[in-house]
Each structure stands twice: as C-alpha cells, then as structure tokens.
Simulated assay, not measured.
Amino acid sequence: MTELAIRQNGNTPALTDEQPQHPGSELVAWAESAVAANNIAQSLAKTSFVPKAFQGKPDEVTAAILAGQEMGLSPMAALRSMHVIQGTAGLSAIALRGLVQAHGHEMWTEESTSTRAIVCGRRKGSTQEERVTWSMDRATKAGFPAKNPNYKSQPQSMLLARATSECARLIAADVLMGMPYSSEELADESDETAPATKTRKISRKKPEPVAPEPEVVAPAPDEDAEPESRADAEPVHDEPLWPEAAQPGTQPTQ
C-alpha cells in the first residue's frame, strides 16, 4: 500500500523503533532541558542552599545542572559537588568516587595516612584490579605543596583525593567523560591557591621640607658706647705733634 493510499484511508503509519529519529531531535530535547534548568536556576541562585560561588549567578547554576545531568547527578548534588577553578569545572574526588560506585564499579581504600594513600578499584565484571599510590614525596616532586597549602594543613585528605581521582579514571573513564578531573587536582595546578608572597611596602611619601636656620647677623657697633680697652680707643694726644718752632704758620722767637 502506498503512502497516498494510507492517507486516503485516514490511517497514519505507526512509529517503530526501527524508524530513525530526526538528527536534531536530541539537540531539541537538550535545549528544552536547558530551558527547564534555567528556570530552576533563577530560583536556586537566590538562596543559600547553593555554594557561595554560584549564588546570584543563574547562568552558572544552569551550566552546573546540565553538566551534572549528563553524568546522572541531581541538580542539588551537582551544585554541591562541582567547583570552578580558573575557568575549568571539576567534581570533588568523593563525587567522582560516588559516580563510579553508582555504576556498579568497585573502589576501596587500602591505606590512608599523612604520608601515603593507596586506593584500589575494579571495573564491574572484570577481575583486573587497579592500584594507585600517592605519597608526599610524589606530590612534592610534582610541586603541589608549594602551590596548594592544603598539603601542609591536611595532607592525608589531599593524598587520598589524588589517589581516588586517578583510580576512578582507570576503571571507569566512560562514566567521567564529562568531567574527568577532580577539583582537588585542578587546585594543584592552579595559581589561585598559591600562598601570596609577602613584600615589604616602601613608603613613597615625600619628606617634609626643613625650615632654613635663621641667619645670624652681628649687631651694629654702638658709637656712644665706651671702648672696652685702651687699645680699642682712639689715641689722645696731650702734647702737640710738632714742636712749637716747627709748627706751621708761626715765626721763630728772637
């Protein structure tokens, strides 16, 4: 029966699983999910139930919800587990571990101290076991303690996070395709967590001008004052300077 005959009879062909879907149908469905996620984000961004980094940022909340949805996380779980460090989003190590275990894969901690962490894992249906060791010596050689002060304040947690993240990728890379690196790993590579270098502040204030010392002027001599010594006084002649006979304008006596 032709398609025209089917339409004339008022019948419509039933859709079956064998019939291919429209190439853009998945994109349309994703766009509809994005609109729904944004509607939720507009309300969540105003509350204190979302992390501080997402508060007042509905677009960031929308992106986090959509990214978490692709990995099977609920909106609130995605917001609590996701961190953006220098423009790159990452899940916490415990969230990566939870996703791996939720898909039926096994992960367990063999050792966890302040100097070494050993995490093991096995993929579902496999007998091969993966074993990852992270020590403080390994972290120091990579330069992480110099960038991330958490290696000094809580070394056990940081080493366990590194071992957990690496083991999760080894046994379940397909589960973590959307976000393969943990936020702890991103922080180790970031300069945002590096301690600030203390610098001495040099004052640029101009010195205040110093007033010049007053010029000392010697007092003028007092003409009416008597001289202190005879040597300073003008000579006084009681006798004439010339003999009487030699004085000019006089005639010698006979």
Results as ranks from 00 to 15, higher is better:
V217P: 00
W30I: 12
M71H: 05
C120D: 02
S183Y: 05
D232C: 03
A67C: 02
W30N: 04
A196E: 12
A41M: 07
P207Y: 07
Q128E: 14
G10C: 12
E18I: 14
P58Q: 08
V61F: 01
G87E: 09
L79S: 10
R7K: 05
E70L: 13
P180I: 07
M76F: 07
P149G: 06
G143I: 11
R97V: 06
A41V: 07
D137P: 00
D222P: 02
A220Q: 09
L159W: 08
G10V: 07
E111R: 15
Q247V: 11
S190G: 06
A196H: 10
G56T: 10
Q128A: 11
M136A: 09
E111C: 06
Q254A: 06
G104A: 03
S135C: 11
A246Q: 14
A34D: 05
E130K: 08
W108P: 03
V210A: 11
P155Y: 01
P58I: 05
K201Q: 15
P75S: 02
Q154Y: 02
G125Y: 07
A31W: 13
L91F: 15
E239C: 02
E244M: 08
Q8Y: 12
D191Y: 01
M82A: 10
A173S: 14
D222L: 02
D174Y: 13
R80A: 06
E213R: 14
A218Y: 00
E226L: 15
F54T: 08
A172M: 07
A146K: 15
M136G: 05
F49V: 15
E239R: 04
I94H: 08
A194L: 05
D188G: 07
V84Y: 07
D238L: 12
D188R: 12
Q251M: 06
P221G: 02
A14Y: 08
E129M: 08
Q156F: 01
K52P: 02
G90C: 06
S203N: 13
A146D: 13
G10T: 10
N11H: 08
V100N: 04
P13V: 09
L4C: 00
K124E: 10
I118L: 08
N11W: 09
E239G: 01
A93W: 07
K205T: 14
T88L: 11
G98F: 06
S112V: 09
R80S: 06
S81P: 04
S92V: 11
A78P: 03
L159K: 11
E70N: 08
I118C: 03
Q247S: 01
K205G: 05
A218W: 00
A37D: 12
Q128S: 13
T193Q: 15
S126L: 11
I40F: 00
